[in-house]
């Protein structure tokens, strides 16, 4: 565990707390893509299977995994049941099969071991890399976002961004490289670049998040 990894994880944790705060205080999930949130549930369930296989890493690791599974399921519940009328499926139109299908194919080709757990792990890494696309697509479509939603996205983007210096650190400190995680992580971070540009040049200057028409 190094400082980049810890900050990355805390940023991930913060993003979920920001999202929960947004939904609870505005009593609305307007502007949030249900499809992206559903993909995260799939990502966590397929990646954290090791929880049930007795593959113990640390209390920190187990607690975080349980939190990510639990909170992502809770968010789906809030969106689908509790605040259902505030979710507009008409603008959440990205085709998730374009993300799930290729991720599955990639996982079948590129994995560390040809076992169910390892294929699902690789699948979860590839799927996570692109899971934000329905959300970004929705943002692009509506052309604007509530400020709190942009803070959520910024924290989520920072999480994978911070994993990059973590991997560089690990390469020099213990000589390990996880090519699947690194390549997918670079793609994932890259998807946020346009968003971050607008976030830094507008939202952090006190302006509303608006895309040029």
């Amino acid at each position: 565990m190094n400082v980049f990894r810890l900050l990355g994880d805390l940023s991930h944790l913060a993003s979920i707390l920001i999202l929960l705060h947004k939904i609870q205080t505005t009593r609305s999930c307007r502007g949030i893509s249900f499809k992206t949130q559903a993909l995260y549930v799939v990502v966590f369930l397929t990646r954290y299977l090791d929880l049930f296989l007795g593959d113990w890493v640390s209390l920190y690791n187990t607690a975080m995994k349980l939190f990510f599974i639990g909170s992502s399921c809770y968010i789906l519940y809030l969106m689908k049941l509790r605040f259902r009328p505030t979710h507009d499926p008409a603008i959440d139109t990205f085709r998730v099969e374009y993300l799930v299908g290729p991720s599955l194919i990639l996982a079948l080709i590129f994995n560390y071991k040809y076992t169910l757990v390892e294929i699902l792990w690789a699948f979860s890494i590839y799927l996570e890399a692109v899971a934000i696309m329905p959300q970004l697509f929705m943002l692009q479509r509506t052309g604007e976002a509530e400020t709190i939603t942009t803070h959520y996205l910024a924290a989520l983007g920072a999480y994978r961004g911070l994993y990059i210096p973590n991997w560089i650190y690990r390469y020099f400190s213990d000589g390990t490289v996880d090519p699947i995680a690194v390549i997918a992580g670079l793609v994932q971070t890259g998807l946020y670049l346009d968003f971050f540009y607008v976030y830094f040049t507008r939202v952090l200057q006190g302006q509303k998040f608006e895309l040029p028409a």
């Binding site: 994880d9 991930h12 090791d50 296989l53 975080m64 071991k113 757990v117 390892e118 995680a181």
Partner: peptide, 10 residues
């Protein structure tokens, strides 16, 4: 050699 690769990241 273990049957699974050890993934210690989240």
């Amino acid at each position: 050699d273990d049957d699974t690769t050890r993934h210690d990241e989240l």
